[in-house]
Design a binder for these strands. Structure first.
Length: 573
DNA sequence: GCCGTTTTCGGCCCGACTGTTTTCAGTCG
């Protein structure tokens, strides 16, 4: 069985958790977690690196010991060190870390004093009121554990960015209207535009005596108050989303914004530079001794450590600090750079708006073109087109283009990549189109090597242009199909094909890491909404956010170009 | 366990809030 990076990362994280519960050296624990992060965010396969006898120690946070452990995992599929740890510490204890309020120390106490090793046993102990008598625990703690067990049973998890956006915007507007509020901003992973968001972190600057904390707790959507203090409060919304509000002085706003935007790894890296320069950074500012030398703006904080402003989407400690230090941060794409959309459906197949309606909606959004890409025949549930129907559709588009002003409809197709790697429609009709989006809509569960070969074989077809929603994942609903994305992107580079970044908020496919890889390999990306309605065209902004997380500049993107320019690019080879 | 334009040893980011305590550890972000 092939070892994926995620498998290695899971083992290292598990070791981190077990060592934590055991009470091991915290820096050793961090080393395992750092190693896990490095491996999980790597665009290359560590298994292949091991096979190619590459030096794993070159990877950040991987030293002699972790390198040897990765090799053992790749070669044997398991790790003796983990097995030994699990003999020592019951594996079920790791589950207990999911209970907010229970950390390694308390879990260790529950285990040694009450013999609890699972969530089920914990629930049992709570209902028998056994927790409250333990040293360091009390009635309150027991009640909180009970609440958390219930919350976990209701399966609270990270929400999609688009859902977070719907919750965040009205809440932010509410806070900004409160008397005395000078500044309010949402920080955290929402500001970094991560594809999923765990909770919302909001930062406010207000004049003293303003009722912002009280009014926050009174917000209509609040279900319960988790904690509240003069500068920091947390609530649980009815939607199950936790919101933390933090109030700071204007002189600290930039430092706090940086701090609460994260990521944690980015902050640690920035603070490390500060320490080297005899500075201290916390959420109140940058300090030289006791003197505050920056903090009002993020720019000011970065400047103190010799860096330019780093856009929030890049703050993952994935090379942005080094790039900033060398003044080679990417000039990130913005929505204004987009000149058209290359993936849309109409009522001809499974869309909800007609050709003209979609064209006018695209024009309203300032676009120069809209690519119409109906499904091909294999997608029967969507009424996919066969060759004759597609020809008739092409003629419809031609006729409409003669009447339309200020917008051009491009003649495309979302053609299925069949199991053997062939395309669902013959070449003669595909050649009548302006371009193709080629997608997988069936046989999601092929083995990795076959799925990868299927897509790469499809790229050999001279009619292939853009690989649609390359991983097939639906966020929080369906995992990506098992493919070697690095190989696919390399193939696209070699064969002159393109990758889609599907901007639909349920997809956001490619992800940030593979976008960055595509950019590094020189593969251009189409950011497309896959709109099935005029409303669907609005998803472009989610694609832009994701693209920025992938370091994309306007030049890396197909649809920042005019149609005449694109036309040349689509002449493959 | 990792890492090194001060170091191969001795560091490793930092503060608020809670609950259980009588001055603070644990947890969280």
């Amino acid at each position: 069985m092939p070892i994926h990076n995620a498998d290695v990362a899971e083992i290292f994280n598990r070791i981190g958790d077990l060592l934590d519960i055991k009470g091991d050296n915290p820096f050793r624990i961090r080393a395992y977690r750092d190693g896990a992060r490095t491996v999980s965010e790597l665009s290359r396969s560590v298994a292949e690196m091991v096979e190619g006898e590459e030096d794993l120690k070159a990877l950040p946070g991987i030293g002699k010991d972790l390198a040897a452990k990765i090799e053992e995992i790749v070669r044997t599929g398991s790790l003796s060190f983990l097995e030994k740890l699990e003999e020592e510490i019951p594996a079920g204890l790791v589950e207990l870390l999911r209970i907010s309020g229970l950390g390694p120390r308390k879990i260790n106490a529950l285990y040694t004093k009450l013999g609890i090793t699972s969530l089920a046993q914990l629930r049992e102990a709570v209902s028998r009121q056994k927790i409250r008598d333990l040293e360091g625990f009390g009635e309150k703690t027991e009640q909180n554990i009970r609440k958390e067990l219930d919350r976990l049973a209701a399966s609270a998890r990270r929400i999609k960015l688009s859902t977070a956006d719907e919750i965040a915007r009205p809440l932010l507007a509410y806070l900004r209207e409160i008397k005395g509020v000078r500044l309010a901003e949402i920080a955290g992973s929402y500001r970094r535009r991560m594809e999923t968001v765990g909770d919302l972190d909001i930062l406010v600057v207000h004049v003293s005596g303003s009722p912002v904390m009280e009014r926050f707790l009174d917000y209509d959507d609040v279900q319960s108050v988790v904690s509240h203090g003069p500068t920091r409060s947390s609530v649980l919304l009815k939607s199950g989303v936790q919101v933390d509000l933090r109030a700071v002085g204007a002189e600290s706003y930039g430092a706090a914004l940086l701090y609460f935007t994260g990521s944690k790894a980015h902050n640690i890296a920035v603070r490390r530079i500060a320490v080297k320069n005899d500075l201290k950074i916390n959420e109140y500012g940058v300090f030289k001794g006791k003197k505050r030398v920056a903090g009002r703006t993020e720019e000011g904080v970065y400047k103190q450590v010799g860096l330019p402003f780093i856009p929030p989407e890049l703050r993952e400690d994935r090379g942005e600090i080094e790039a900033a230090a060398q003044d080679r941060l990417p000039n990130l794409l913005t929505l204004g750079d987009i000149r058209g959309d290359l993936h849309a459906h109409t009522t001809r197949t499974d869309g909800h708006a007609g050709l003209e309606e979609m064209a006018l909606a695209a024009r309203e959004r300032g676009y120069e073109y809209l690519g119409i890409t109906e499904h091909s025949r294999h997608v029967t549930v969507a009424g996919g087109l066969d060759a004759d129907e597609l020809r008739a559709h092409i003629r419809d588009i031609d006729r409409l283009n003669e009447q339309l002003e200020g917008i051009i409809l491009l003649k495309g197709i979302e053609v299925d990549i069949l199991e053997d790697g062939s395309l669902d429609l013959p070449g003669d009709v595909l050649r009548e189109l302006d371009y193709t989006v080629c997608s997988v809509h069936s046989r999601f569960n092929l083995a990795r090597d076959r799925q990868t070969a299927r897509i790469i074989r499809a790229m050999d077809n001279p009619c292939f242009h853009i690989l649609g929603h390359p991983s097939g994942r639906l966020i929080n609903e369906r995992p990506p199909y098992d493919i070697d994305m690095e190989q696919v992107i390399r193939a696209a580079a070699a064969k002159g094909c393109f990758m889609e970044l599907n901007a639909h908020p349920d997809r956001l496919d490619l992800n940030d890491i593979h976008l960055k890889l595509a950019r590094e390999l020189g593969v251009k990306v189409a950011i497309s909404t896959d709109a099935h309605s005029t409303e669907g065209l609005n998803s472009m902004r989610f694609g832009i956010w994701q693209a920025r997380r992938g370091w994309l500049e306007p030049g890396d993107v197909l649809n920042t170009r005019s149609w005449p320019e694109l036309k040349k690019i689509f002449r493959r080879g």
